[in-house]
Design a protein around this nucleic acid. Structure first.
Lengths: 181, 181
DNA sequence: GCCTGCATGTAAACGGTTACATGATTCG
DNA sequence: CGAATCATGTAACCGTTTACATGCAGGC
């Protein structure tokens, strides 16, 4: 398995602003939910661990609030930077849709077509979501991070457009020589 | 986490031919290694479990060999078909490369460019691998599965071509407005 | 005889998800 | 007051990887 990426994801989130565990989850869900996610079961224990290693430190909290926000330390930034300098893991090892398509002949008639249609709808939906995100990004021009936001957004766009085309080609071939014996 | 897909992957492999645990690992590594993989720690316990549930059954083995091959039963085929009829999980939740790009400004100068170059080389390499696989598939024309093999192959081609283009666009933008402050 | 590949397996650790428990705050 | 949301956390479980252990078979 890949090494503990939640550690770096959380450190990265804290470079944007000091955050609580709750904030961190919101951050991932609302900003980069299309390619990253963290849940509480990872976040809270990791915050404790990062604090023990002095990679983050808690900010003083108001006496009325339970909320504990953390900020990244200089050491934390170094650890994050070292990770960012490493090559990334490209291409996840498993793709369930392709596995199903590979064995589709063993499924009911039209199983392959069903997955292709599901895939098509999925990426069409994604492209609409991306269009919304693009507008959102445009509203923050001036922020030094917009170029990186557009970068990750364009990744999704390229992939979804390519896969829409793939679905269409495959569905066309499917109707000409269908699975149904 | 997604439900136990190793179960179905192994059942699917056994529809191709009766196989031993060793064979199954080879099968995934050599045929669909670009989008699926199983290791022994999953395979052998799962074979026992599948046998207990009567989804597969061991073939008689020669007295000289330790090798135990399994074949899928009718019940096993039904279970596999039921799974194939279900919608697939599209788009894995985590993409490490995009996470790194998203926080690239926190890394050393040129961190984003380094990842983009790595990505470019990766997909160029993949496209060459795919060309080899295409030739391999052509050699099996007549096999009823070739259409599905081409389907999964084309998925990879579409994605890699799209991402090559994405890398080039991104690297071009990068050299115009580099990360290096 | 030795090395490579065939072949089967297990234990421990790790990463990640899910479900649950608890209670404060805020707003209508 | 009640509902939604803020907020923190834990325990159990599951899936997956890694490392290890064992030994046979075939070819150089």
């Amino acid at each position: 398995m890949a090494e503990n990426r939640s550690r770096y994801a959380i450190l990265g989130a804290l470079t944007v602003a000091p955050m609580s565990g709750y904030d961190i989850r919101q951050f991932f869900a609302l900003s980069v939910g299309n390619f990253w996610f963290e849940n509480y079961g990872q976040i809270y224990p990791m915050l404790k661990a990062l604090q023990r290693n002095r990679l983050i430190k808690p900010l003083a909290r108001g006496p009325t609030s339970r909320r504990v926000a953390y900020e990244i330390t200089a050491k934390g930034r170094r650890v994050l930077a070292a990770w960012l300098a490493q090559p990334a893991e490209l291409q996840p090892p498993r793709n369930e849709a392709l596995l199903k398509l590979f064995f589709a002949r063993e499924g009911p008639p039209g199983a392959a077509a069903a997955i292709l249609k599901q895939c098509r709808a999925h990426h069409q939906q994604l492209l609409m979501t991306y269009a919304g995100i693009a507008k959102e990004i445009d509203r923050h021009s001036g922020n030094p991070n917009v170029s990186n936001w557009r970068l990750t957004l364009n990744y999704g766009r390229h992939v979804s457009e390519a896969l829409l085309q793939w679905c269409d080609e495959a569905l066309k071939a499917e109707t000409q020589a269908p699975d149904v014996a």
